[in-house]
Computed example of a mutant assay.
Amino acid sequence: MGIVERASETVRIPLTVFYPTAQAEQPVKKGPFDFSLAVNAQPDSGPHPLVLISHGSGGSPWVHVDLARTLVENGFVVVMPEHHQDNYKDFSDPGPSTWKLRPAEVSQAIDLIAQDPLLGPVTSTEKVGVYGGSAGGHTALSLAGGQWSPARFRDHCEAHIAEDFSSCVGFITRLNGGWLDGLKKLTAKVVIRWRFGDATPYRHEDRRIRAVIAAVPFAADFDLSTLVKPKIPLGLILAGQDINQIPRFHGQAVQHTCETCTTIADMPQAGHGMMLSPLPPLGSTDSIAYQLLSDPPGFDRSQLPALHQKVADFFKSHLLTP
C-alpha cells in the first residue's frame, strides 16, 4: 500500500493518502505505530475510485490504517483530510464550531486530489464515498443531506446533560458519582448556552459524493426529519456499548428514523473505540480516553477485518455501478 502526505503553507488542509501500488513496502513509524508502507510510491494505473475518511475529534490518519488497507486492497484510493483545529496536532476547537467546516473540507480534499500530479491522473473523483466515525460520522450525516444546528446541540445537552455527558463536553472530564458532578453539569450548561445559540441550519452538498457511512456518529443535533430518506445511500455502523455517544441519542436515533439506510453493522458488545484500528495507546485505566475508547469486556477485535470488508463492499456497490 502506497502513502503520500500533502501539506504546505498553501494547503490549508493537510492530506494523508493511501493507494494501490506495486512497489515494495518498508517499515514506517508514525507516532506510536509501526506500519509497513510504500512511501511516495508510484501508484498503480487507474482510474481508482475514491473514498475519504473523516476522522473523529482529535483524530489522526494512523488510527484508520487497517480500514484504509482493506479499501486499498479493494482498489480504492483513500484520502484522509486533517480537520482544522480538531485533530491530533491541534485540538483547540472541537465540537459544533468545527463541524460547520468539516463537510467543505471534505470537498476541498476531493479538489486537491483531482489536481494532484501523482494521484490525480489515476483517481476518479466523479463518484466518491465518505466514511466518518464519531465527529466524522457527523460529517458523513451532513453530506448525506442531514441538517443540524448548534442550537440543537445546546438543546440536547440542556435536556440530557447527565445521560450523555461526554457527548456534550468531550474528553475534558466525566461524571463519576462524586460531589463535583452537580458543578460539572452546571458549568457545562452555562458554557454550552453561551457558545452554541446559533439556530442556523447547516448542511452541505457535493454532487460528487455518492455514498456515505456514519460509524458511531454524533447525531443528536440533527433534525431527524431530514434523514428519513437521505439524498444518497447512507450506511450506519453502531456500537451497543458506546458510552461516548449514547446510542439511543445518536446512531440508533438515525437508524430508527431512516427508511432507506443500510445498517452495515450493529455490534452489541462494541464500544466507541471500535471505529479505531489500530487502537492507539489510551493511557492508564483511570484516564478519560481509556474509559471512553477502550474495548468493553467481551468485544473481540478479530471481528474488525470482516467489518472493514463490509465497508469496502458497500462502497463498491454504490460507486462502481454505471
Rank of each mutant, 00 (worst) to 15 (best):
R69I: 14
K29C: 07
V51I: 15
S107W: 05
V28F: 02
Q108E: 10
P20R: 04
P49T: 04
P43Y: 10
P96V: 08
V51K: 01
W99L: 05
D44H: 09
N74F: 05
P14S: 07
K89V: 13
P32A: 11
P81N: 00
V63R: 04
G58T: 13
G75I: 11
H83D: 03
A38Y: 08
S107H: 06
G31Y: 07
Q85E: 12
D66W: 01
F35E: 01
F76P: 02
K30A: 15
V79T: 00
G58K: 12
P103V: 05
T70D: 10
V11S: 10
K89D: 15
V39P: 06
H64P: 01
H64G: 01
D86V: 14
F18N: 02
V11K: 08
P49Q: 11
A7E: 14
A114W: 05
Q108P: 00
S107R: 03
T10R: 15
V106A: 00
L67H: 02
E105S: 00
V63D: 12
P43S: 07
A104D: 14
A114N: 06
P14H: 09
P20N: 06
P27Y: 12
A7Q: 13
H83S: 06
F18T: 01
A104C: 08
I110F: 01
I113T: 05
P47D: 13
L71W: 05
A109W: 03
P27H: 13
V78T: 08
I53E: 01
T16M: 07
A114V: 04
V72N: 10
T16G: 03
G59Y: 04
L15E: 00
D34Q: 15
V11L: 14
E82W: 07
S92E: 09
V65G: 08
P27C: 13
T98M: 06
I110R: 01
K89S: 13
D90T: 12
R69L: 15
L101T: 14
F35H: 02
